[in-house]
Structures are given as C-alpha cells and as structure tokens.
Design a protein around this nucleic acid. Structure first.
Lengths: 145, 145
DNA sequence: ACCATTCCAACCGAAATTGCAGGAAAGGGG
DNA sequence: CCCCTTTCCTGCAATTTCGGTTGGAATGGT
C-alpha cells in the first residue's frame, strides 16, 4: 500500500506551479532544476494533469505550464485522482469493477469502503494553497485537530 | 495505491478464525474451501500473522490455527501491519527510512504524514469482532457516522 | 504406520513501476 | 527566416512487486 513516485512528484510539481503567478507559465526545465526530477519524467507526469484540466500549457520559448484554477480551488484529491484514476484501496471498489460473486457474504467490503471514504475526505479537504504554504513539519489534520 | 491480495485475504482468514471458538483450531484446508483461496497461498499469509503473535498453531491431524486473543482485542490495523509492516503511504515515512535531504524544504511531507494518521486511526478503530459481525453493505464509519 | 496438517524454501510468469531516449511539432526572439 | 526553447508523442528497458505454484520436510493425532 504505497503511493507511487508519480503521485508524489505530481504534488511537488503542482506546488511549484502554484508558486507562480496565474499569468506566466513555468517550464518543466525549471521545475526539474529545483525539484531534482528529470525533465523527461516530469513530462510524463504533467500529461495526465493536463488531460484532467488542472493545468494548461504554452509551447515554444518562454512556454510552460500554469494552473487553470486558483490554488485554493484545487485539492490534493484532484491531483492524485488525475494520476491514479479512482482512489480506491482495493480493485473491488473501482467504479468499473464487475461485482464480486462473493459480495453478498463478504465481511470485509464494508471495511474497505469505509477506508476509501476516510481517504477521500482527507485528500479532498486539503487544497493546493494549503500545501504551498505548509512548512516541513506541519500536520494538516483539519477536523481531527 | 492498492492494498495487496495478501492484505485482503489476511482479513478474510482472520474472520474465519474469529468464527471459531477460542479453543479448537481451524485448518487452512477448511478456510481454503470456504474462501476459495489456495491452501498454499494461505500458508504464506498466515506465517506473518503467526510471527506477529496474532494466531497460534497446532500441527498434525485435527491441527490448525486459532486466535491468541479474543476477536474484540484484535484490530484491522494489527492484521494489516502484520502483513505490510509499517502502514505508510510513502517510503519517506517508514520508520527505517533514512531522512530525505530535501526534507526541510518539503511542502508535501506533512500531507502524507497526515494521511498516514488518518489511515492509522481508522484501521486501529475497527476490531476483528466488528468485521465478523458485519454484513455485506455495512459501513463502519465510527465517529464519522 | 498412516495421514492430515503445519512449516520451510525455492522458483516463476506477468504486471507495474520508474524511469530514459529519440524525436516531431509549435512558437517566440533575433 | 532561422534558431532555440519548449511541449508533445511514442517506444523501450531495467527493476521490482504481485500473485501465486511446487516440492518437500517436520510434527502430531489416531
């Protein structure tokens, strides 16, 4: 049960973009330099973010990527789902999954679905703006104090 | 971000054991028959549960496994941690991880640590007894109603 | 002695992960 | 108009993880 490097890098990439003003685009080259992630790998990561409509791009010199919405209207959940698809802990719960024949007798599906909800609520409750302004050891536990 | 079949099967295996009285052991053969998981694979799964002290075994005819504690004193977290080790969403947070050089400037570590805590609280709040008595579409969201 | 069971260790194919390489297309600045 | 920067697209490849299977040894009840 681990999130992939793509998930982690996507968050860091988006934080970089959030640090930029809304107008001017930021190139992957500069993100690569500052975050120590190869430019080529960043290209792979930004593609689904672009397809999900979270960022837009400009080509050519002085080009790059920028957020399509203000950072406080983008959640960590938006970003992770753009990379991962459904954010489900087990395949059974994916929206396109065929229903398990063992489902009616299953004692654990409720547990997993509860976990899914807990994760959803957490990631949807944290905005990119919160991430951007967060220091290294801050803990953003909203309603859990 | 998925939990493995081992995690899922471990829960189902433990529910089967919880359905048994505390005295008499249940063989993997019968679990295999009822749950449709190969006996050999179950052997792999029960081993870490045994090493973690959640179950004990008797060999030979009429042998099998039984819980070492009552089902309401074992949590889903106990079971998953026995299989997975640390229940951390990213390697950075593992107890044996060397500290990332980028740590002081990292804007996302707090997010991930918060997620870890949310997951921990959930899985540690659900007991094997709750799982056992849970029907297919029950949702065990304790304090979240 | 037999048989059911746990225990132990190796192996194995398929899939996912984590990238890298090589361009083609587009756009701005000189 | 040419060059440079950048995005965009495709393919590949090494490594690890996943999801088991296989084979057998040790143990213990009957």
């Amino acid at each position: 049960m681990k999130f992939s490097t793509r998930d982690r890098y996507a968050l860091r990439l988006m934080v970089e973009l959030a640090n930029r003003g809304p107008g001017e685009p930021l190139s992957l080259k500069s993100v690569s330099d500052r975050q120590g992630i190869s430019q080529k790998y960043l290209e792979q990561i930004v593609t689904p973010l672009s397809r999900a409509g979270l960022v837009s791009s400009s080509r050519g010199s002085q080009g790059g990527y920028r957020l399509t919405r203000p950072a406080n209207e983008i959640t960590a959940g938006d970003i992770l789902r753009a990379i991962e698809g459904d954010l489900v802990p087990i395949p059974c719960l994916a929206s396109q999954a065929e229903t398990c024949p063992r489902r009616p007798q299953c004692h654990t599906i409720g547990f997993w679905d509860g976990l899914r909800q807990v994760i959803d609520r957490y990631v949807d409750g944290i905005t990119l703006e919160q991430l951007r302004t967060m220091k290294a050891d801050d803990l953003p536990l909203p309603e859990l104090e």
